[in-house]
Design a protein around this nucleic acid. Structure first.
Lengths: 196, 196, 196, 196
DNA sequence: AATGAATGAGACTTCATTCAT
DNA sequence: TATGAATGAAGTCTCATTCAT
């Protein structure tokens, strides 16, 4: 219901505010320790507002996760559009992902949490499979061209994603900036490792 | 209180049983969704027993995490004891870690969860710093010998750990076995990436 | 406020639509489980409209009940107008009541519910006392004429009403029709029982 | 769960106390207006106690209704056991039912309410069918013996039950006593009406 | 030692009602 | 007039923890 409600501009703003505040609090405090009351108090609205815009607390987190993974994928797609060489596309994707990761450390934390409960893990599996599959395709192409060594492309893609998330989150400088050395380290770890 | 109690042999068995069952349930179901009642019902004891052996549910998880990280460190130390060459010690450590990871997927899930709440993250930070520092030391030695390229050793160690956890968990075959190809992929991704 | 508002023709139609829809839903679903939102959504108007026409959800039910009892009394009065003999008037009243009961099973259900909460029971007491008193008067007259045996007329009237409501509701055939055999059974149960 | 818990004597007493208090409050105040808090506060226990003994507020009412109908049936069965003549058994049953009705006005109110919501009506249908069927059997036998006039026995049984409930509730004198004149009126209304 | 009944704060959620637009 | 966003009190229910037995 709340899902399909037609929102006015002000409505959409409120919803976004709740979404943003909840994301921050969930990441800071943990999902369960953060109550719906905390959220609405923080935004300064009544408790009913929350349920006007969202079906439930669970559904809110699912939406945060789904949106985030969709956003990541869009970002990656845009980043690799310019290059044509698979290896260059791979590198561009990695760089974009790290930046995204550093700019969304809250989300990374939430994703980490999400894997710990089956209902959220379902959402994540769907979303992550897409992202990993995209990368795996590039790897396959690079393998076909002899650019990188053979091996299970999905496994490699998975490892790459792990490095990106970990470093992106751990070495974010705040306000979305990234330590450039970290980006180079990540790229190097991934690509030199892949090269034949 | 419960921490220092002197336990009989039967007492220690009970405690271990609770610990093991809780680990499994937390990993399957999530920490918060698993109630203390679930745990004691599953083990077939009364609720008082739980609070006889543990101060609180939180403290139980902290103990699980602490024990696990200590166990991992011990395992790694044993694995690298035989070799003397830093790079060989690194490789041995990676292989041992992956096996450990695959044999303890439950724990990896719990660790993932633990990072999402500050009180548990504290415990993890302490434990993981040790593990990562161990690896970083090896990397430094290898760098000094010119075996691998220069760079922030802690950052590299962090990336390695990410790959290990991810692949170890994702490609565990059940009952602690590991896909050998996966181990090779992980080692290769880590080491070739590091080599000059 | 809403009580005395002067309504346009369209206004009255809307109000009646709300009244009718609410009656049906309350009867089907129960009063409390049916929310004001259910009602306005079902009629296809905004929530403000509801509070334009009714002071509250409670007041709406009170009005439904009051209207219904008034309608029943009017129906009965019309039905017994033709006859002059008390016993014949009684019988005519019973027949009319049963038909009304069968045509208003929704209302009977709501009346049943109404007795379970004091504020509605107040309304019902007032309305039902009138109906029962009317019947009791007829009984008194019949007793005076020796047509039926002596006894507390109010009590007898009360029993008659119980039979009518029960059979009327239970053996309604839908769309207001009544099983003729049921009417005869009811009349017989009431009158033969009364006769000296 | 709560359903099957093995209760100590003290446990059963507590449960019964809650059951009794809830019945009274539901009857006085209405089911929905009476909150679980009202009940536990009234009995002077914590809120968790309620959910230790009952699965939900709904389930509690269902149990009240089921127990009551079972009790009524038992009472009726005991009352008619002595007589052998169908008509005498019928009369004995009516007298017993009225006494029961007068002694359980709270229940009658709750039953009335129960019919207004489908989930409770289900329970009632099952319970009442049994009671009505018992009576209908006696009627059939009496018809076979030519003691009362022909007609749908279930319908007649239904009408009898309506009279009993109505008069029993309305003319209860408190503390379970009954106006004897009322009992006679009820018996007379029912039996003289049935006689051929 | 052990049990499991009891506690009560607090979680999520609903909904009658109000009011800005 | 009409809408539907907003309010917030109140409802049902859970669960970590305590404690009498």
């Amino acid at each position: 219901m709340a899902e399909k409600r037609q929102l006015t501009r002000r409505g959409r703003q409120r919803r976004d505010k709740l979404l943003a505040y909840a994301t921050t609090r969930f990441a800071e405090n943990g999902y369960h320790p953060t109550s719906v009351s905390d959220i609405v108090d923080g935004v300064g609205v009544g408790k009913g507002v929350f349920y006007w815009y969202f079906d439930s607390k669970d559904q809110l987190l699912e939406e945060i996760l789904r949106d985030a993974l969709r956003d990541l994928r869009t970002t990656q797609a845009a980043a690799i559009a310019d290059a044509t060489d698979p290896l260059q596309r791979l590198e561009a994707g990695i760089r974009a992902s790290i930046r995204w990761s550093a700019a969304n450390t809250d989300i990374i934390r939430l994703v980490n949490f999400g894997w710990s409960e089956e209902s959220f893990a379902d959402v994540l599996r769907r979303g992550r499979d897409i992202v990993v599959t995209d990368t795996a395709h590039l790897i396959e192409q690079a393998v076909d061209l002899g650019q990188i060594m053979e091996g299970d492309p999905v496994m490699m893609a998975s490892a790459i994603r792990a490095v990106i998330d970990q470093l992106g989150q751990e070495y974010a400088l705040g306000n979305g900036d990234v330590d450039p050395e970290m980006v180079e380290t990540a790229v190097r770890m991934c690509l030199r490792g892949l090269r034949g």
